[in-house]
Design a protein around this nucleic acid. Structure first.
Lengths: 256, 256
DNA sequence: CGGAAATTTGAGATCACTCAATTGCGGTGG
DNA sequence: CCACCGCAATTGAGTGATCTCAAATTTCCG
């Protein structure tokens, strides 16, 4: 299959919008807000940032003065041990809110890196409390997002701790596919899948080589197809079963 | 060493207090609150619950109508795969707030189980939003707690994904010791350590047998001593080094 | 004292890792 | 257009950490 046979990327355009015409907020994945709340978000936001693929968005060892909502593209949170071993903690898709953990810790948290080119809405950390104060509802929403992210990391921890290699890969493919689907990044059954095998290995706590062999085995079984940066799930039932991972239909979440 | 030679448990007494005379809040580990905030917490609280060692506090597959702050004792959050493999997600010590994740999910989250006898302050889930509304500061504090817990799970994920057995054990021992120290559960260098090796194995993503052998090896090296339900750290530097895990002095956190 | 549960130990099996070499592909320069 | 380079993906082979199975041994508790 050649590149031009694949569908075009389906991400929103990579430019800044005022929140009133936000390209994300129209999606059914996100809860509606009142005009007043929207105004508060707009006032909270300090602008947008663009990063190229591979760039560091938040340095692992420096406290970032900004919080972000990912607007378009793919990114991930990670930590590294001092000898260089890296663990990817979670992947970030449009709508994800990052940087909260830093708020209440003295550094020593995580790094964030862009996988594709990304656009982010930036919020100054020091205004967070006044947002809670002025709009308790948005504070509640932020807590919601934090709790949702924790739920996701819980799943990843189960994966790293208790699933074998095939189960891990099956789980991750389904997880990413479902989340991408939710924000409209799936077209004709294909998702943009910009990760290399090192990313997958680091997310699953496997070695690069074993990740390759496992991926290859599942693909040979006809469960999925991964090619030229695009992923297609061929046997969702089988993958869910193998990974023992069944996402309920994802409910709409707030968008900050 | 016989049981009577060990220090007595140092947990606060297991009875309900009005928040005004909370036995936990006096600890330097927790941030002060205004009388007004304290009143709001008291109003939010619906009473206390007591569970015996081994009892289930939150059922893994049922949504709990209550949120909890652990007041005394030890507990843990966990998930199980359908074939019974269990992963402990995090341990709960006095001051920890549990149940938030459930708030924004339709079940499918985690179970919580008591390790020792525990006392908890219970809060009705349906009043959470009104708490945010009435006391944005407390909402902010809850977000703080959620973010802090996420930071902890991030660490656990790195452990399960990228550390070997010795490193995992070293990391866990230091982690639990430091946290217990923070809430005054250390006396003369000894912490109550009520976990069995299955708990440790399930927290670290190891088998029971290998956990045993690793624990034994580290103890033979003189790094720690674990006996009759009490833990003593003998070589904190060596354990930190081995686990590549260095906790900054833990800052005071809110207490809800 | 007796029985159940937790810990400990040994032995062999496996899954995942490391090392090393090969392949495939996109880009680059001649 | 082709040779060449660099990086990611792939494959093979051998090693090793961790797992499973099974059997002591110790501790806990009534």
């Amino acid at each position: 299959m050649k590149f031009e046979d694949y569908p075009r990327p389906v991400s929103p355009p990579r430019c800044a919008h005022p929140c009133e015409v936000c390209g994300l907020r129209q999606l059914p994945a996100f809860l509606p807000v009142t005009p007043e709340e929207l105004g508060a978000v707009e006032a909270f936001r300090s602008g947008t940032r663009i990063f190229e693929a591979g760039q560091s968005i938040i340095d692992e060892h420096r406290k970032s003065p900004l919080l972000f909502t990912l607007y378009s593209g793919w990114a991930f949170r990670f930590k590294t041990l001092s000898d260089g071993r890296r663990q990817i903690l979670s992947f970030l898709l449009p709508g994800d809110f990052v940087g909260l953990q830093d708020e209440f810790a003295d550094g020593h948290t995580h790094g964030v890196e862009a996988v594709t080119g990304v656009t982010l809405c930036a919020f100054p950390r020091e205004k967070l409390w006044s947002l809670f104060h002025a709009q308790p509802k948005l504070g509640y929403d932020i807590t919601w997002l934090a709790a949702g992210e924790e739920k996701m990391i819980d799943d990843n921890l189960v994966t790293a701790g208790r699933r074998n290699a095939s189960e891990r890969v099956a789980m991750l493919l389904m997880h990413l596919y479902r989340r991408a689907e939710r924000v409209g990044m799936v077209r004709d059954g294909w998702v943009e899948f910009p990760f290399n095998q090192q990313h997958i290995a680091d997310a699953l706590g496997l070695s690069l080589v074993h990740t390759n062999k496992t991926l290859r085995r599942l693909q040979a079984l006809g469960l999925h197809k991964l090619d030229a940066g695009w992923l297609r799930i061929l046997e969702p039932r089988a993958l869910e079963q193998l990974g023992d991972y069944f996402e309920r239909p994802l409910r709409p979440t707030p968008l900050i």
